[in-house]
Design a binder for these strands. Sequence first.
DNA 1: CTGAAAGCGCTTACAG
DNA 2: CTGAAAGCGCTTACAG
Lengths: 330, 330
Amino acid sequence: MARLAKVSKKTVSRVINDSPFVRGETRERITAIMSELGYTPDPQARGLAFRRSFLIGLVYDNPSSQYVIDMQQGILDAVRELGFELIVHPCNRRQPNFLAEVRSFVERQKLFGVVLPPSVSEDEELNKALIEVGCPYTRIASISLDEPARMVVTHDHRGAAEAARHLADLGHRRIAFISGPDMFRSSHERRRGFAQGLADRGLKLQPKYIKEGAYTFESGIACAKKLLAMDAPPTAIFAGNDEMAAGVYRAAREAGLEIPRDLSVVGFDDSAICSKVWPPLTSVLLPIREMGRIAATKLLVEGGLRERIEHPEVSPTLVVRQSTAAHREA
Amino acid sequence: MARLAKVSKKTVSRVINDSPFVRGETRERITAIMSELGYTPDPQARGLAFRRSFLIGLVYDNPSSQYVIDMQQGILDAVRELGFELIVHPCNRRQPNFLAEVRSFVERQKLFGVVLPPSVSEDEELNKALIEVGCPYTRIASISLDEPARMVVTHDHRGAAEAARHLADLGHRRIAFISGPDMFRSSHERRRGFAQGLADRGLKLQPKYIKEGAYTFESGIACAKKLLAMDAPPTAIFAGNDEMAAGVYRAAREAGLEIPRDLSVVGFDDSAICSKVWPPLTSVLLPIREMGRIAATKLLVEGGLRERIEHPEVSPTLVVRQSTAAHREA
DNA sequence: CTGAAAGCGCTTACAG
DNA sequence: CTGAAAGCGCTTACAG
């Protein structure tokens, strides 16, 4: 204990925890000694005494590695300077012991809080369990599912609407949508937004031009094949994510269509593949790292370690590349 | 304490830590009670007393998200059942405080051990620091840099050699290599293996057909452009990783070349893009998840929690897809 | 504003 | 093979 060099260890503890009951002078003296000795309080001991650790959990069940990595970075951006660490907890919602497993994880580790990206964020059972064990959380989802203090809403529908208007403005009329799986909120939100965007331009999203995929490359191929085999095939396709959009590329190639000359394509996620496929894919960008930062900051606010947040809002943006072009009369 | 229901708390502790000094009957009785009550020892308290936590660290500075995610999974495959958790620690080797930062991280958290994938695994400074603070580690690298108990060797050269023989067997003679950056061990290993593989077929890797890239898409484009602009351009290119191979695709397209008819391409990593580009990319697969599993298991062995490992060896495999074809006389 | 006591839930020596 | 004591490094009430 740096106390030998100074006062008592109780006061040191007060300094560490930013207690107001320390004289300015005393605080400065102690702070100086601490940084001189390179002293850092032991997180395990603190955790034991607090009955709460300094660990943030990221519980995810997400197919996209880039999403997870970006989110991890964002969370760390927010909490690293405070000495928090990030425990990652991949899991599988379809596994029977999923709930019990996650629950025991957060309970055992006495997590400071957990960040829940889709689709675990949409699991109401899990949510109830977290409340029961008293573990703070932030849910990230396309629409609000909880009180604002515990949500990061990504407003996917806005990005989808922008994509729709973009295609409409290029003169397309036969416009198709490949949705994600029904069990994902984002599938519905992206579809809703897309329909709304078309409506903004006086167009309608026709049911026959809607196919349900699974957010996978293969499902993108399958859906696109069906669409392109129609009597009046679409001249533009909006895929619910980039994976499926890449599948549309494949199907278009097999059908002998050239993108964007014969078919315009838009994806969602603005992932790494967008710039690697040819032509580069127009896509909707979600600021994932920023979302992670905000989610973690909300945990800090809830824990009383931060006052409030600067930019608590997040919104998708359409990144126009070369996979979309003006409609050409056949 | 479950002691009320039974003996003393000391004995319970003995059971938890697998001490041999407990009678079989007593042990069974206690184990039964524990699982009945759903009792799990508090990792923070245990850590405090042990002066060592039950946390594994993954320190990485890696551009590929898929790599990191797979490795995380592999580590968890090995340690989850023992109640360990995984703390991720992305970092930047080029940052001036890199060493001090990582060091303070492992020291503060009293990590049970850390897993070091490339390129942090190749940092001798960091290695020294870890030894100084007494933190166990496993290094993952293309060649052996440490005692076997602390290494997972990926033998990249073998995979590169296989790629070379594959191209040679297809009849190619003007074969080029785009290397990764000089500071990565893997760059040299892949180059060495590739040269060896060509030598196995009586061919020579000509210096003029070697270009140094940076493991990025853009550098792949740049290097490929130079190669394809040569008087006697290569008919096959082996890129040091898939990112750069995707860059080769782009350059080939701009040069009006069709893959694999006019140019065969091989990548390294067998990443997700392989199956999404057209034609699907032939690539060298490294079993990353398995590597993570082995690395973590070695940490457990070192900690005395596991006897030994089943399959401690790992080797690359060539996955042949449609980006390579027999050489066509011009 | 500051200190002496008791405790967080476990463990390691030390005795039986 | 099993138990009573002291301690891991911090914190929370409780007194001054």
